[in-house]
C-alpha cells in the first residue's frame, strides 16, 4: 500500500486486551516451534484481501491467519477446530466464562 493516498495518521491508541496478547503469544510460540513462518502468516493476511483490512481488527486478522497456517501444517484439522469452537461457544457468552482457565 506504499504511496497510495490516505488521510491523516490516526493518533488514537489502545491498550492490548488479554485475548490480543494471547494471539501474539500463540504466533510467537507456534512459529518458534516450526509450525509456520512469519511469511506464511503474511501470505494468508494478504490473501484475505482489502475487505478484511476494512472490516477486521489487527488481531482478528492475525488469529485467522494463525489458524489457517496451523491447519495447513497439520497441527489440527478443520473438524477438530469446528468441534472446539462449538464447545467454547457453549460455555457462555463472555470471554471470562468461555476461557477454560
Amino acid at each position: 500500500m506504499g504511496g497510495t493516498a490516505a488521510g491523516p495518521v490516526p493518533d488514537a491508541s489502545h491498550d492490548f486486551a488479554l485475548w490480543e496478547k494471547r494471539v501474539d503469544a500463540l504466533l510467537v510460540i507456534a512459529s518458534s516451534e516450526g509450525h509456520f513462518t512469519v511469511d506464511g502468516l503474511r501470505r494468508v493476511l494478504e490473501d484475505m484481501g482489502e475487505e478484511a483490512f476494512e472490516t477486521m481488527s489487527y488481531y482478528e486478522r492475525w488469529i485467522s491467519s494463525v489458524n489457517q497456517n496451523l491447519i495447513e501444517a497439520g497441527v489440527y484439522t478443520t473438524a477438530e477446530l469446528a468441534t472446539k469452537m462449538t464447545e467454547v461457544a457453549a460455555r457462555g457468552p463472555t470471554y471470562g466464562e468461555a476461557a477454560s482457565d
Binding site: 494471547r22 494471539v23 500463540l26 482478528e60 497441527v75 489440527y76 469452537m85 470471554y95
Partner: peptide
Amino acid sequence: LTYWQQMEIAVRELL
C-alpha cells in the same frame, strides 16, 4: 465473545 475471540480460545486449547 466475538467469533474471533472464540477462535483464539479454540486455537489456544488445541495447541
